[in-house]
């Protein structure tokens, strides 16, 4: 059973849960192995940025892909996480981890204040409201100079540390960031498997029907909005401690658009698609630099092509492609792999 987005709405049988565990295990293995195979600090920083984007995208996908809402202002939450963490630790010497938690809660509170009225809006009005909110926060980042350092940015943010271990280089941050990615995806997966997840999917399918079945749609919408904001906040805090310098220009509406694009390209309503979307677009954005000054055009063309031909997202697109091949080949060896791949 699928809704009009191609998003699977059935509950997950035990066999798929097993495959899911396999996927998560595979992810851990890959994470551990990559630094052994990849020595380049440049690739590490690219992967780190992908990881940070993935955290934001996973949260955003809960909102867009599963609950069927939209937000073009999530750069603000990413930024609020960075600035709360940055200001507390750099200016006031707060301990780092509690600061991250405070940032998360503060961002969540702000998300609630804006989300509660905003999510009563529909469609393009919601788009504009979130866009406007994002712009306002971005302006404040630049204006509230005593706290944020204004447009010159906030310098001297200390790197995170645990015990005696300080996360001050690309490799250590790689493990830290991807540990968070793993953890966030786990949280998202558990959420989606629960009553909450089913409620979200019901809202996406038809808000009116969900309401009539007793699902408190407005409450769920606001909650998932707040949750997605908190995901973004955590990612923002990690970014701040990693780059040790933040400035308002990072958190503009271009970034908001970029993360939503990653949700779509990866596949709305696909948890693993979030990872793929973030990875593909970040890689492409860097890789296209070989096109030198044409890289903006190349990126636009690439994005347009994906949206034209693979609107369900790259992951689902690959799946469909694979399935159609299967009809032609019917080779037994392929089937177990297909079933596993299908789990995504």
């Amino acid at each position: 059973m699928e809704n009009r987005n191609g998003c699977k709405l059935v509950d997950l049988p035990e066999s798929t849960r097993r495959k899911d565990r396999f996927s998560f295990t595979l992810l851990v293995v890959i994470i551990v192995l990559i630094p052994v195979l990849v020595e380049s600090k440049y690739y590490l920083i690219v992967l780190n940025i992908i990881g940070l984007n993935t955290i934001v995208v996973v949260g955003l996908n809960l909102l867009i892909g599963f609950a069927g809402q939209i937000s073009l202002g999530h750069a603000a939450f990413f930024g609020l996480g960075s600035y709360f963490s940055g200001i507390l630790t750099a200016n006031y010497g707060f301990p780092h981890w509690p600061a991250m938690v405070v940032a998360m809660l503060a961002t969540g509170a702000i998300a609630y204040l804006i989300g509660y009225p905003a999510l009563k809006l529909r469609g393009h009005y919601l788009v504009m409201a979130t866009l406007g909110f994002g712009i306002i926060i971005n302006i404040l980042m630049g204006e509230l100079e005593q706290f944020t350092g204004g447009h010159d940015g906030l310098i001297g943010i200390p790197p995170l540390s645990v015990g005696g271990l300080t996360f001050d280089n690309d490799l250590k941050n790689f493990y830290l960031i991807w540990a968070f990615v793993f953890f966030c995806m786990l949280v998202a997966r558990n959420l989606l498997d629960s009553r909450v997840g089913r409620a979200l999917r019901a809202i996406h399918g038809s808000e009116v029907a969900a309401n009539s079945l007793g699902v408190n749609t407005s409450s769920y919408k606001v909650k998932v909005f707040v949750l997605s904001a908190m995901f973004a906040s955590v990612s923002g805090s990690l970014y701040a401690h990693y780059i040790t310098f933040i400035s308002p220009s990072t958190y503009d509406f271009y970034y908001s658009i970029q993360v939503v694009t990653m949700v779509i390209v990866g596949g709305m309503g696909s948890l693993w698609g979030s990872l793929f979307g973030a990875a593909i677009l970040s890689f492409i954005s860097e890789a296209l630099h070989v096109a030198k000054q044409y890289h903006i055009i190349a990126y636009g063309v690439f994005l347009s092509l994906i949206l034209i031909f693979l609107p369900e997202g790259v992951l689902v697109g690959i799946q469909h492609f694979y399935q159609s091949k299967k009809l032609q080949r019917l080779i037994a060896v392929k089937t177990p792999f297909l079933l596993w791949f299908n789990r995504f």
Binding site: T261, I264, Y294, H295, I296, I297, Y299, V301, S304
Partner: peptide, 13 residues
């Protein structure tokens, strides 16, 4: 988002 992608292409051109 397709119009956004096309917009980027036009702008780059």
């Amino acid at each position: 988002f397709l119009t956004i992608g096309l917009s980027g292409t036009l702008r780059g051109t």
